[in-house]
Design a protein around this nucleic acid. Structure first.
Lengths: 114, 114
DNA sequence: GTGCTCGCTCACCCCGAGGTAACCACCCAC
DNA sequence: GTGGGTGGTTACCTCGGGGTGAGCGAGCAC
């Protein structure tokens, strides 16, 4: 709403941010979302190449978690060689939009440390 | 570095979100920001009471990191017993506002995982 | 004296996220 | 046969964020 009201929902979460933080809490999660935002349909190997430094194990586990959280959609075509396509769900797109102000804050702020 | 084909600022950050994630990446960071948002000027012990479960060590270190990142302001009154007040800087308030869409996303989304 | 408050600091430990590397099954090009 | 590419899985290990508990230094209440 206009302003946020009282914290503390019944499930122990305070204000919804921690719910979101659980979803994007992995080291590469936001980068995966960002990559899928800029390149709507990507295969596993393409994502790996878009995220230099990520390992296959971590990419696979993060993608499965994002899928379980309903923000990433996975389509597997049963061919050889295997072909799997990942894309953002509607919820994932909304999450990405919700991340834009945060990205803007990160870009606009003065450099403090580093 | 800068092997990413799209955004890629000189410091290796991609889209500003990872800058923000470094600031709010601690387990309790967003909750501290939230608490300071709802209770603009709080002392150490008050914050501790507002965040059940946090330890003094973690609260202290997180507050110092947030202060170093320029989002929290710390004022120490040299009295006995000690009195230290924490508040959000302008940048911290902007960060909190940038977190609101994320909080809204977290509140509005359907519950996916238990 | 004993204990409490306040805002920390220090030393120690633990566990899990994430990194490393090997392996799988399948096909194609050489 | 060798190598590359597909999308993973498995076992192992490291490292540091965060938890645990103690202590400090000054003053006040009892």
């Amino acid at each position: 709403m206009t302003t946020l009201n009282r914290p503390s929902t019944p499930d122990g979460h305070v204000c919804g941010i921690d719910t979101a933080m659980e979803v994007i809490g992995g080291k590469w999660k936001v980068l995966i979302l960002w990559a899928l935002h800029e390149h709507p349909h990507r295969r596993f190997g393409e994502l790996r190449r878009l995220l230099p430094g990520i390992t296959e194990k971590v990419l696979a586990s993060h993608l499965r978690e994002l899928e379980a959280d309903g923000v990433v959609h996975r389509v597997s075509y049963d061919e050889v060689p295997p072909c799997v396509e990942y894309s953002l769900t509607e919820d994932g797109k909304r999450l990405n939009e919700a991340l834009q102000p945060l990205a803007a804050w990160g870009r606009e702020r003065p450099t403090i440390r580093g």
